[in-house]
Design a protein around this nucleic acid. Structure first.
Lengths: 245, 245
DNA sequence: GCAAATCGTTGACCTAAATCAATGCGAGAC
DNA sequence: GTCTCGCATTGATTTAGGTCAACGATTTGC
């Protein structure tokens, strides 16, 4: 069950300064489509909110009243079956928007895996914003197209790749996460648990654990701690991820 | 291998009449965002093309020069692994657009499963069109958001549902296909082969066949011919699709 | 109408990954 | 420090679905 002890923390803009113009996530997000001069208008309808790790902030099936823009931290998006089986459809970080759905209810749930900060807009207010800033709509369309490509790649992974190939693909994805296109880190932290990885890759925690152990045994990766690892053989991992042995 | 014997057939607008204003798919597609008065402009850059069943018309990895709008027939979209494993990411019919990708190469391949007719636009020309008709951009964004929701649902299916649940979900999807929201047919044709169904659901043809036979044995469906069937117990199928036994 | 090819079904057997069951380990609480 | 609790690993066993193989059924071409 989702931790629901604390309510999301709504923050006041620090010292009353326009929070959007100083937002570190602005360069990454659709908000950069709004010109500086109009930034106050954006700020007027944005509600900055913080949630603790483990806390949910979107519930599948609930009325989709808000549109979210992540500015810090990482969250997982997921869907549940009635018996509790879970599929994580993505991990999202700074710059990512949520709640675009045309439907009037959310199609997925969201929960912070690290402390998360986000801007929350009324979806009704967003509509006016998009009419006035067509560039913002372009950015949204671009982002949606990119997500669609990622979703198709994930379908290939879930439908046709072996456990080994799934883990290889996942580790490469994580090593590139937040890096400029074409770059990857050799060493990085995984902010999510084994259970989250399993639910993202359509596997069990045991299979994730065994597969990582095996990749370590083969010298492809090094496991520094539960959440930190090094890719020792990026080329080998790449071949594996693509389905070559 | 994809049939490549015939080249796509480029058609001349019949009798020189504006093909867009008489297009049967217009009501379903993003083109209805272009006002009647401007229809000739749309028609000027649209190239109407027809492809035979079994013929491919988009190749993953090729430069993404065109944007497509299906006007008749059904096509399958898919991704391949180097060893030939295939994942079908969707079946698309009239009104569906393809090739939105931000990347400069196609992220998937497309092949007709029934004779397909589509309009083809240069992506560069589309950009100008979107600038002039913001409503068209809105429609595209809406469509992309809907596809994203469908993609997440498919991830849940591929990652967490059993073969039985996958088939149940698939049959319900097909029974609703092209119907007004909230309606479904009890009897319908499946335009795709067992192999296509298997590659869409992340299964093998044998499992698809066995599972259908079993559903028939249980009186949930009736199989009229290889490609035509009846849903005898819509409620039971619904429960199954949702993961209840 | 028949041959050939393709597609679908069914059966026997196998295996990758799931399940069940301990055990190990590391981060906070005190 | 050490207790505890949640997370991770490892091992033994099971199973859903894959693989291999044979056989029907349907369509296509002549």
């Amino acid at each position: 069950m989702t931790t629901r002890l604390a309510r999301p923390q709504v923050l006041d803009p620090i010292g009353g300064a326009d929070p959007c113009s100083t937002c570190e996530a602005r360069a990454l997000s659709v908000c950069n489509a709004v010109p500086d001069a109009e930034m106050t208008r954006l700020a007027a309808i944005a509600v900055i909110t913080e949630v603790a790790a483990g806390q949910g902030f979107i519930d599948e099936g609930e009325p989709a009243t808000f549109f979210f823009n992540i500015t810090a931290g990482t969250a997982k998006l997921f869907k549940l079956l009635p018996d509790g089986r879970r599929q994580i459809t993505g991990f999202v970080g700074p710059g990512h928007f949520l709640g675009l759905a045309v439907s009037d209810t959310y199609a997925f749930s969201a929960e912070a895996i690290e402390p998360v900060r986000f801007c929350r807009f009324q979806r009704s207010a967003l509509r006016g914003l998009l009419d006035d800033f067509p560039l913002m709509e372009k950015r949204l369309l671009e982002a949606a197209a990119n997500e669609l490509v990622a979703a198709q790649e994930q379908m290939l992974l879930l439908g046709r790749k072996t456990a080994r190939e799934r883990l290889a693909s996942f580790l490469l994805m994580q090593s590139r996460h937040g890096m400029p296109c074409g770059h990857a880190r050799r060493q990085f932290k995984l902010p999510m648990t084994r259970s989250d990885i399993a639910d993202y890759l359509g596997l069990t925690i045991e299979t994730v654990s065994r597969t990582l152990t095996r990749l370590r045994g083969e010298g492809v990766i090094e496991i520094l701690s539960q959440s930190e690892l090094v890719i020792e053989d990026p080329v080998g991992l790449e071949r594996l991820a693509g389905g070559l042995r």
